[in-house]
């Protein structure tokens, strides 16, 4: 018993040490990092809990039209983008994309990032025959590629075109973002980073470019930056008519 608590303690110490290093690194960059860092490190052996629900608020009024920092950051972090030399443009994977929308009546145009909206009641999960699509306790919707049979029904069901099918053999994947031929994939909300107490790569990149259009955090925590921002000003979920209660929300449309 005491043995095990000692081990657990060691685990926590280890994490605190790592968190300290991360904080040190962050302090070099603009101070925003520290204030946006929403999560405390969870011990590695502790499962995710439903006491949290991760989400992102996209403030489209701050999203610069010629900027694609979030998209490149995601490509670098997760290794997609230039990994499929044989696939056509229509066949290449997109975890996050920059979408330009123009109001038909007024002609006013703006851009915004689109990715998996991490729905609370995800259609992709409902239709998946094997249960490979699933929603983690903390609200992140993932594909378990070990049991995905590549039927693409989830892609048919997703209202946001958030998912991609890998059309060819891949090489040199990132260890923290396994992906491969014949399976479906989508934004993971950088679960590997979030599990370490870090924020998703896109959010970090947006802040690093001083746009601050993306706020990441725990929707269930009243005091998190994202909850406060959502409470303070209007925002919408896309395709609200479907009632999916998305984890990603948009301001300014």
């Amino acid at each position: 018993m005491s043995e095990s608590s000692k081990l657990a303690d060691a685990a926590r110490r280890n994490f605190l040490a790592k968190a300290g290093v991360a904080a040190g690194a962050a302090a070099v960059a603009p101070g925003v990092f520290l204030s946006t860092s929403p999560a405390q490190a969870r011990p590695a052996d502790e499962p995710v809990s439903s006491a949290k629900r991760w989400g992102i608020l996209v403030d489209t009024t701050k999203c610069a039209s010629d900027c694609s920092a979030c998209v490149s950051a995601c490509e670098n972090e997760n290794g997609w983008g230039s990994s499929e030399p044989n696939s056509s443009a229509e066949q290449k994977a997109h975890w996050i994309r920059s979408v330009t929308i123009k109001n038909k009546a007024t002609g006013f145009a703006k851009t915004l990032p689109m990715m998996c909206q991490h729905c609370e009641t995800p259609p992709c999960v409902d239709v998946c025959p094997t249960g490979a699509s699933f929603r983690r306790a903390d609200g992140i919707v993932l594909v378990d590629k070990h049991i995905c049979i590549g039927c693409r029904y989830c892609m048919m069901a997703c209202p946001y075109k958030a998912r991609s099918f890998v059309h060819e053999d891949l090489h040199d994947q990132k260890p923290w973002a396994p992906r491969g031929k014949g399976t479906v994939e989508s934004c993971t909300l950088c679960d590997h980073r979030v599990d370490k107490g870090e924020i998703p790569a896109c959010v970090e990149a947006c802040s690093a470019d001083n746009h601050n259009a993306l706020i990441f955090g725990d929707l269930y925590d009243e005091n998190s930056e994202i909850s406060k921002a959502l409470k303070a000003k209007d925002s919408v979920e896309l395709r609200a008519d479907l009632g999916l209660n998305t984890g990603v929300r948009y301001r300014g449309i």
Binding site: R42, A44, D45, E46, P47, V48, F134, R136, A137, D138, L142, D144, H146, D191, H192, D195, K196
Partner: peptide, 10 residues
């Protein structure tokens, strides 16, 4: 454990 429960022991 890792994929479904986010357990990240190495």
């Amino acid at each position: 454990e890792t994929v479904h429960r986010g357990i990240r022991t190495r």
